[in-house]
Each structure stands twice: as C-alpha cells, then as structure tokens.
Amino acid sequence: MSINFKKSYKFAIKSSFYVTLFATGLVAVLLYLFFEINYQFLALFGLATLCFSFFVLQFRVEKFIYKRVKKIYDDVSLLDSTTLRNQPITTDMATLTQDVQKFAREKKIEIETLKIREEYRREFLGNVSHELKTPLFTVQGYLSTLLDGAMNDKTIRKKYLERAEKGVERLIHIVKDLDMITKLEAGDLNLDFTRFNIVDVVQNVFDLLEMKADEKNIMLMFDMKYTKPIMVWADEEKIQQVLTNLVMNSIKHGKENGTTEISIEDLVNNKIIVRVTDNGEGIQKQYIPRLFERFFRVDKSGARSEGGSGLGLSIVKHIIEAHHQKIYVESKYGYGSEFSFTLEKAE
C-alpha cells in the first residue's frame, strides 16, 4: 500500500506557534534575568523554533496517524480486499471517514441483499418441496392401496391407476417448467424467431382452453373483431405458451359467468401490446410485486386446489424478457386483473 498524504497543516501550524511562543518567552525571561535581551536573537530563535516545530510535528503526526490508519485499512481489507487494498492510504481524517462510511454502507446493502436471498432460497426450497411432495404422496397412497389388496378389484384398480397417472403428470409438468425457467435464466434456451399472426395464436389458445373455461362458464373473447392479420416477430411456440399461461391463470382465478378478454393495440417504436383482461377476483396490492416469483401463490390453498405447477407466471416473465420485451400487471382487488406484454411488429 502506498501512502497518500493529503496535507492538512492547520494542526501543525497551531501547535508550532504555541511551542514557539512558549520557547521564545522562556528564552526572553532567561535573557532578562541573566543577560541582556537581544531582540534580533529572539526573532531568529523564534523563527527557527517555529520552522523546526512545524516540520517535526507535521512529519511525526502524519507517521503516527499513518500507522493507525494503515491498521484500520488492513483490518477492514480482510473483509473486502478488492475495495481497499488496492487504494492508497490517506491520512486525511475526512477522506478516511468517507472511505469507511462508504465501505460500511456497501457492506450493509450486501448483507441485506444476502438476507433477502437467503429468505428467498428458504421459501423457494419449501415451495419446491411442497409442490413435489403433494403429487408424490398422492401417487404413493394410490399405489400402496393397490398393493395392499385393492388391485384385485378391477374398478378400483383402474380408478386408482388413473389418479396415480394424474399425479405423475403433475410431477412431470413441474419438472419441465423448472427446467424451462432454469434454461431461460441461464440463456441456454434458444428462441426460434419467426413472422406470424398473433391473432391466430390467440384464437388457438381460446380453442385449446375452451372446455376449461366452460367449466366455470367463463367467456373467452376478443375486444373486437380483427379482420386483418397482425404480424409480429417472436418465437411463436413460446408466445403461445405465454398466452396459454395468462388465459389459464385468468380462468383459474375468474368468477363464475365471467369473461376473459384479449385486446391487441399498436404502440410506438414498431411494437404492439397484448392485453389479457378478466373480471375475476383481482389481486391485492401487496401481492403484485411478487406475482412472478417461482411458486408464489396469492391464495395458497385455493390455488393448489385448481392444480398447476405454480410456475406459470414466472415462465411468462422469463419468456417475455428473453424477447427483450416488457410485461405489466394492473389489478383491483374484487374487480379483476389485466396482464399485458409487448411484442415487436414484423416488417
């Protein structure tokens, strides 16, 4: 470490002045008592004392402070060698205070971030454990019942095997979704960009989920009749998955005899925005920032009874961000929600 003296002579000048006053005064008294006072000698003596005192004090104080400041830097550098060890040491107290305060603020932020991550990790592991445990125990229960003797009854055997199959399908669905999110986050999932009509994709999603919507008598519809194609540049399969997840989510949390409406609007900068709006139960304001977290559920019990992996919205967010686009949420509790995302228009 190099030393970087930021000169601050105020202390040395004051101290030297006081030493000079005392020494000159003492010499003057001695001359008055024992010899004849020589003012020229006193002036030279005072000037010499002032200069000598100043340089000695300045040098010694800086060395004294440097040793202690260096120890502070060394002690603090044990926590973060890249931040402080490569910087010159300053003996200026204001600069030192700023450095240490900055270091303390950065470490506080880092510690708080680590705490948040640790909390998220614990919650995530707990959610993964719960999501996997439920279908696993279901499958285990049905198979154990069959092995205990129910296998001899053809009716029970078929029913339990079908239910066990559903549990396995849910496990596969969760694992596939987790694998997709991991690949999206790592940038390993390649997107196949093509030019396609987003209106046709929305209609395909409506056809796919029509029976699911009919179970709650929810109407799937456009906000208007789109007679002309709206061509976009994106991965058609992944965008269909985004729309499927959003529409499925609106059906899951929708009200009986409700509606799920999709609108497509032009935006500036050669973009469109796709809106998925429902008049369902809505989302409370405090939950909105966490909607796209893995396995996060607003209604922990009710949402699980509806099935799903709990990863749908997280996948939606990652796919849209992989397209370098934005996704938005607006919701009023008790009145419904709107999820919207942007896409690039095809030329």
Score class of each variant (00 low, 15 high):
Lys216Arg: 09
Asn152Asp: 05
Ile181Arg: 06
Ile181Pro: 09
Val168Gly: 03
Gly187Pro: 08
Leu146Val: 07
Leu209Ala: 05
Val168Gln: 03
Arg122Ser: 07
Leu191Gly: 06
Met151Leu: 12
Leu171Met: 14
Leu209Asn: 05
Arg163Val: 00
Ser144Pro: 00
Asp188Asn: 15
Met231Ser: 09
Asn204Ala: 04
Met211Cys: 05
Leu114Arg: 10
Ile218Pro: 11
Gly187Cys: 11
Lys225Trp: 06
Asn245Leu: 06
Arg170Thr: 11
Val199Gly: 08
Leu184Arg: 12
Glu169Cys: 01
Gly126Asn: 09
Glu256Thr: 10
Leu146Pro: 04
Asp153Met: 08
Lys216Trp: 08
Asp153Pro: 05
Asp223Trp: 12
Val175Leu: 12
Trp233Phe: 09
Ala213Ser: 14
Thr134Trp: 03
Gly167Tyr: 02
Arg121Leu: 09
Leu243Gly: 02
Phe222Trp: 15
Lys159Tyr: 01
Lys176Met: 14
Val199Ala: 07
Tyr120Pro: 00
Met231Ile: 13
Leu184Ala: 12
Asp148Gly: 09
Asp200Leu: 07
Leu132Pro: 08
Gln240Lys: 05
Leu220Lys: 14
Leu246Ser: 02
Leu143Cys: 07
Ala213Cys: 13
Arg170Val: 07
Glu118Arg: 05
Lys159Gly: 00
Pro229Leu: 12
Met151Ser: 11
Leu208Ile: 07
Asn204Cys: 04
Asp177Gln: 14
Tyr142Ile: 01
Glu210Trp: 06
Val247Leu: 03
Met221Trp: 12
Met180Asn: 14
Tyr142Pro: 01
Asn152His: 06
Glu119Ile: 07
Leu189Gln: 15
Lys176Phe: 12
Asp223Cys: 08
Ala164Trp: 00
Leu209Arg: 02
Asp223Glu: 13
Met211Ile: 14
